[in-house]
Each structure stands twice: as C-alpha cells, then as structure tokens.
Simulated scan of single mutants.
Amino acid sequence: MPSMQQLASVRGVIFDMDGLLLDTERLFKKAYQRSASQHGIVLKDSVYDMMIGLRSDASQRILREQLGPDAPSAAIIEGARHYYYMQIEEEGIPLRPGVREMFDYLDELDFPRAVATSTHHKLATLKLRSVGLLDRVVGIVSGDQVAHGKPAPDIYLAAAKLIGIPPEECLALEDSPPGVIAARKANCVTIMVPDLQAPNAVTRSMANFIYESLHDVALALKGARAIPSS
C-alpha cells in the first residue's frame, strides 16, 4: 500500500510534459482528427488514446495498424503536424492546472527537476522555453535520446541520473499509462495525474498515488513533509 512516507522520502522530481505540464494532448488529438477527416476518415477517440504517451515511431505504428494498409497514414500524420503547429502558433501553449504552484513549491524545497518526454528533444525544448519552464528544470530527456521509449524505463533512469538523485528517491509525475509503467519500472515514486485517459486497472495497480491535478500533488507533498519521521 502507498504511504505518505514514500512522498516524504522524495528528493527530486521528474515531469512528463504533454498532458502533464502542457495542456497539449487535446490540441494534438484535435489536429489528428481534423487531418484524418480531410481524407474521409473518422479517427476514433479510442485510437488516439492508444497513441498517448508513446514516442512518435510507436504512436505512428499504432495509427497505421488501426487504420489499415489502405489508409493514407503518412498524409494524415503530416497533416496532423501542420494543424498542431498552426494551433500552437495561433493559440499558444496552455499549461495544466497547478503547474506554476508546483514549480514554486519545488523552488522552496530546492529540489532538482527534469522533464522526461516522448517528444523529440528540439520540439520539447521549444515548448518549455515558450511557457517559461525551460530554465526551471535541470534538463530534458526525450524519446529520441534513449534506446527504448515509454513504457520502457530508460527515459526515467536517464532523467534520474541527470538530476543526480537515485530513482527510488525521485517523484515521477505522469498522465498516461505508458508513462506510469515506465516510471514504476524505473523504481520511481509514481503519481498519475490523469488528462485525457482515466486511470485503468493497470495504472491503478502501478501508480503509487493518483491525484486530480498538480495542485493536489503539491498539497500532498507539503502534507507528507509535515509528518514527523518515525
């Protein structure tokens, strides 16, 4: 059973990015569905849900498998990128609730933090810079920098090494099943903050905690650190 003592033992934090820090999964989903519709295809929510949290090679493979060999998958992917970047340029990148509060509290604790994202490093850097978070992390470990993407633990092991904290003393924050699995395989204390996907049997069994927002995570950390050690 998870205990608040697990949170009290944390000395560093590793964040997922899309869907956890940045409210971008909805934008990408909208872009994919808009692109598919241009080719007369209805991209079901259930198909996009399977793609969340994975590296682009894995997510695009799922898209091709689900749409079948006759679908213009390459054109849909390219169109989705176009619409996604267009939305970001027009609307900016919104943050998920509680992000600033969480970072401010970690500043108080002087906790090192990193981002572990399936997104390509160059794009992840641009996104985090645009919302003012790039200078507030030690660095980024991206999907293109590790041998195996989520749900393999590689990205979290690398992020823990980057901030110089043993994985078991790192808090990993994730919104997707592949990310939750990756973080737990790396032996991080894992919290799921659901976005588009509600917790399922797998994520409920693997996440140490599930909270509704980063605001709730910050409150939980504060509460855990206020408990006297036995």
Rank of each mutant, 00 (worst) to 15 (best):
L106D: 11
A124P: 13
L126I: 07
I181L: 08
R81C: 12
D104H: 13
A114F: 01
F103I: 01
A172F: 10
V193L: 13
T190V: 03
S130A: 04
T117A: 01
G98V: 06
P94S: 14
I181F: 03
V131C: 10
L95T: 14
G98E: 08
G179L: 08
L157K: 01
G179C: 10
Y156L: 04
C170F: 07
I88F: 02
V202K: 04
A183Y: 00
Q197C: 11
H121R: 05
T190E: 08
E89V: 06
I163K: 07
G98M: 09
A183F: 00
A160S: 12
P153A: 00
R136N: 11
M102A: 14
V202H: 05
L162T: 15
P166V: 10
G143E: 04
A186M: 10
E101R: 07
A114E: 03
Y156P: 12
A182F: 07
G132C: 02
I155C: 13
I93G: 11
I140W: 01
G164R: 05
S130N: 01
E108F: 04
L123K: 04
S176P: 04
P177N: 05
I88Q: 03
G139H: 13
T125Q: 02
P166W: 05
I140P: 06
A160R: 02
L123D: 02
K122C: 03
G132S: 06
L106N: 10
E169G: 15
P153R: 00
I77Q: 09
D104R: 14
Y156G: 08
R81W: 14
L162Y: 14
V131L: 12
A172I: 06
L128M: 06
P97F: 11
P178D: 09
L196D: 06
G92Y: 05
G149W: 03
K122M: 07
I140A: 07
Y84F: 13
A159L: 00
A159Q: 05
D135P: 04
S205I: 02
T203Y: 02
R184H: 12
A147D: 08
L126A: 11
F111T: 14
A152V: 02
S130W: 00
D135V: 01
E108I: 01
I163W: 02
E90L: 13
P199C: 06
A80I: 10
D144G: 08
Y85S: 13
K185D: 09
H121T: 01
P97T: 11
G139S: 09
P112D: 13
P97W: 09
V138L: 06
V193T: 15
D135S: 08
Q197R: 13
D154M: 10
A124Y: 07
A147V: 03
S205P: 07
L157I: 07
I140F: 02
R81S: 14
Y83E: 12
V138G: 10
S142M: 04
I165N: 00
K161G: 11
G143M: 06
A198R: 12
R184S: 12
F111A: 13
I155Y: 03
D110F: 10
N187C: 11
I191M: 02
P194I: 01
G92K: 04
A198F: 04
M206C: 07
V138E: 15
S130V: 00
I163P: 08
T190N: 13
F103G: 04
S118M: 06
